[in-house]
């Protein structure tokens, strides 16, 4: 996470790149390209993501003066990517809403109600019928598990997909994520929860089909 000092240093690097320093530019690319592509993919899909990110880099160089070390360079770059992605998506009339409430991303229960004893249960209302068990770490490392997670994330509604990509895949902090997507912290957390719940469920189904107890 970029602290104040890191941010000042990155500002200098951006300034050098703007002045034409290729090495400075490549250092910035090495540092930020993946998160930028991750975000763009979440909004416009795989095919157009790289183009959007390329445009965003040029816009960042062009508008370098606007970044005056305000916040981290990463979140500034990400907000450029988010804006351009949204513009592109809107142009092709795809709806992109990150608002979990209005965007039709309302979620059901995090775990199916049948997994719990009913409220009328005399002893343990709302407790597990069959308690889950953590998955064996060795199984988690399997390539199919990663594939399953990726597939699930790609199928999520845009808000959930963008938030889980930035938070859990790219490792951004909540503040950076909110700034990039222009959503509130509470909304970010709701979307993150739903996305994680969806991926956990997919992994659970995968583990069950692979013979590992839920």
């Amino acid at each position: 996470m970029a602290d104040g000092q890191g941010s000042a240093q990155e500002g200098l690097r951006l300034e050098a790149a703007r002045a034409g320093d290729e090495r400075a530019f490549l250092e910035l690319v090495t540092q930020h390209q993946r998160s930028m592509v991750g975000l763009a993919r979440a909004i416009v899909g795989r095919d157009e993501a790289e183009d959007v990110v390329q445009e965003a880099w040029l816009a960042a160089l062009q508008g370098a003066a606007a970044f005056q070390g305000r916040g981290s360079l990463r979140s500034w770059l990400l907000s450029i990517v988010a804006n351009r992605s949204r513009t592109l998506a809107a142009r092709s009339r795809r709806q992109v809403s990150f608002d979990g409430m209005a965007g039709g991303e309302a979620g059901g229960p995090s775990v199916e109600a049948e997994r719990f004893r009913p409220p009328s249960d005399p002893d343990w209302p709302g407790h597990w019928v069959t308690p889950p068990a953590a998955w064996p770490e060795a199984r988690l490392a399997a390539a199919e598990v990663a594939r399953e997670a990726r597939r699930t994330i790609e199928k999520l509604p845009p808000g959930q997909r963008a938030v889980i990509t930035l938070r859990d895949v790219e490792g951004l902090d909540p503040e950076e994520t909110c700034r990039a997507l222009q959503i509130s912290e509470a909304n970010q957390r709701v979307l993150l929860h739903r996305a994680r719940v969806a991926v956990r469920r997919a992994l659970e189904a995968h583990m069950l089909s692979a013979g590992v107890g839920a």
Partner: peptide, 13 residues
């Protein structure tokens, strides 16, 4: 399981 889910997602980077 939720923590494991986060780790699996993080490994996609």
């Amino acid at each position: 399981q939720m923590r494991q889910t986060l780790r699996v997602a993080g490994a996609l980077r």
